[in-house]
């Protein structure tokens, strides 16, 4: 008797799981980001997420008359959390790679900057050939395009992956790592903040499309193409009315729009 009841409940649940998703009217949108990536997004001493992408996303939401909330989410879990509806959009400097595009829907690119290789100041050599880095410890945030680049380019180096984007920088400063691959602006921000002249940018890396993709976009659940289209429209409008330039000027000296 009891078993029958349990079974029918399970049957009901599976029947429901099969039902297709319904269209919805977007009024509030929850934005997820991994806030370890200053100046794009980081946590300040009040516990708030601040940075370029926060301001930009806020401007987009204002344009679309949406109420937006921000959530911090570790990088490893950022796509699973999106797919599990913990939030509706990823705004987290996510490069549009083929592997990711199979799981999520990307908006148009809203910035593209160069990756760099950073090393300690004491390292005077600019040679970053695989031979020169053989046996050296090279680090980055794990599950990133940087990680893929290191593992592909430097198979004979020791790769170290970190949950956050700011942790490899600390280990470079302490000397656990010999090289870090990260974004140029993140590297500059870290070098400026650390102030003790620990590290320097050795070289820029060319953005090869197979690893880095065309640039950074917002990511949506594949079903939510309506939401993505709204964002694409707003991205274009902010380009046209000069808002993008204004927000960009508040953070960077260079142009990151990269069209």
């Amino acid at each position: 008797m009891k078993i029958a009841r349990v079974l029918s409940a399970i049957g009901l649940a599976t029947a429901l799981v099969g039902t297709a998703a319904q269209a919805k009217e977007w009024k509030t949108v929850r934005i997820g980001m991994d806030a370890t990536y200053a100046p794009f997004e980081s946590v300040n001493e009040k516990g708030e997420i601040v940075g370029f992408e926060v301001d930009y996303a806020k401007a987009l939401c204002a344009k679309m008359k949406l109420t937006c909330t921000f959530q911090n989410q570790d990088w490893d879990g950022v796509i699973p959390a999106l797919l599990a509806s913990k939030f509706d959009v990823i705004f987290s400097s996510m490069n549009e790679t083929p592997a990711r595009a199979q799981k999520v829907a990307f908006s148009d690119v809203y910035y593209a900057t160069a990756p760099v290789i950073m090393g300690p100041v004491a390292n005077k050599s600019d040679d970053v050939s695989p031979a020169a880095l053989k046996g050296k410890a090279v680090g980055s945030q794990s599950s990133t395009t940087f990680a893929n680049y290191i593992q592909k380019t430097y198979p004979d180096s020791t790769y170290k992956g970190y949950p956050g984007a700011d942790e490899p920088n600390l280990d470079l400063a302490s000397g656990r790592l010999d090289y870090v691959v990260t974004d140029i602006l993140v590297a500059e921000t870290f070098i400026e903040k650390s102030g003790n002249g620990c590290c320097r940018i050795i070289t820029e890396i060319k953005r090869t499309p197979d690893i880095f993709g065309p640039g950074v976009g917002a990511a949506f659940r594949p079903d939510d193409t309506d939401l993505r289209d709204m964002f694409n429209k707003a991205i274009k409008e902010l380009d046209d009315d000069g808002t993008y330039k204004k927000i960009e000027a508040g953070y960077f000296k260079m142009d990151i729009r990269g069209k």
């Binding site: 649940a13 429901l16 799981v17 099969g18 039902t19 297709a20 998703a21 319904q22 919805k24 959530q71 989410q73 879990g77 699973p80 959390a81 797919l83 599990a84 509806s85 913990k86």
Partner: peptide
């Protein structure tokens, strides 16, 4: 992650009146 995926599927099935949201 597993639980949220399940809840989401169920709430989709019930329509948006029953949209359950788990904050972190």
């Amino acid at each position: 992650f597993g639980l949220q995926a399940l809840i989401d599927k169920l709430s989709h099935a019930f329509g948006d009146e029953l949209h359950l949201e788990l904050n972190a």
